[in-house]
């Protein structure tokens, strides 16, 4: 990924702005950008969702086929998450094999889904040890304006929730993918000593630390990832979690709709 030199003047401007409780796009620190989700966007996918989080635009497609289970988990389906940060989405993304950023993103989204048991993997077994449903989640970034983590996570949950297991592969009818839990990812960015949620690109570029929390429908934390080289204090982590619990409920309704 080629880095853009960040203007010191803009860095100072944003630091001052957030320190005074304001943001460049007029939001308050705990405000998420407008979220728009279009489910079943792609006809060739078994499930899909296009997500606009402010100007960040992500397309998530779910492909489902049948295959063999892993030898060590014969009574479990297979689910993998991949992410392509294609150069169409940003001047800083380059073509080539997935960047460390893309891999981290895919793994963080995957962990949120997996550790909440969003998809009941046991229900994906067709013949134990022989044949199971294999679910591929592919995250395709289209326009990068900050916080791809959450946009990708909402897109993944939305795409899974409308996905069908294709009956043509087993000689039956299409069946909805069993989605039992709704983990909502909330990412906080720390800029000097201020925390903002759902950072836009300009904020994300100057952030010192990042904390992503996946909250389930009971308000419990299911997964967390701290990124970048800065740190969060114990109190700040508590603050991020409690804010994420509050924000998560509203977002969950949007994703479920």
């Amino acid at each position: 990924m080629s880095a853009e030199v960040i203007s010191e003047l803009m860095r100072e401007h944003i630091v001052k702005l957030v320190a005074s409780g304001k943001r460049a796009d007029g939001r308050v620190p705990e405000e998420i950008r407008p979220l728009k989700i279009r489910k079943n966007y792609i006809g060739t996918a078994e499930g899909s969702a296009r997500v606009n989080l402010g100007n960040t635009d992500v397309l998530v497609g779910v492909k489902i086929s049948t295959g063999e289970p892993y030898p060590d988990t014969p009574r479990s389906g297979v689910l993998t998450t991949s992410c392509e940060l294609v150069p169409l989405a940003s001047p800083t993304f380059e073509s080539g094999p997935p960047s460390p950023t893309a891999i981290e993103l895919a793994r963080v989204v995957d962990r949120g889904i997996r550790e909440t048991k969003t998809v009941d993997m046991e229900k994906l077994v067709i013949t134990p040890g022989e044949k199971v449903w294999v679910v591929f989640i592919d995250i395709h970034a289209l326009d990068y304006d900050g916080n791809l983590f959450d946009a990708a996570s909402y897109g993944t949950l939305a795409a899974l929730s409308c996905a069908k297991m294709p009956g043509r592969m087993t000689g039956g009818a299409d069946k909805p993918l069993p989605v039992d839990h709704w983990p909502v990812s909330i990412t906080a960015a720390k800029i000097r000593n201020t925390i903002v949620f759902d950072a836009a690109l300009d904020e994300e570029r100057i952030a010192d630390a990042r904390l992503t929390v996946a909250i389930d429908e009971n308000g419990d934390v299911r997964a967390m990832q701290k990124g970048l080289s800065g740190s969060f204090s114990y109190d700040e982590v508590r603050y991020v979690i409690s804010t994420a619990r509050r924000l998560g409920n509203e977002l969950r309704r949007t994703i479920q709709a």
Binding site: I42, A45, G61, S65, E84, P87, S95, P98, D138, H140
Partner: peptide, 18 residues
């Protein structure tokens, strides 16, 4: 120019990358 197919754009998932 770079032409790329999203993995979910076809009926059998396409492996990402050129």
């Amino acid at each position: 120019c770079r032409y790329n197919m999203a993995p979910f754009s076809v009926s059998d998932r396409k492996r990402p990358g050129p």
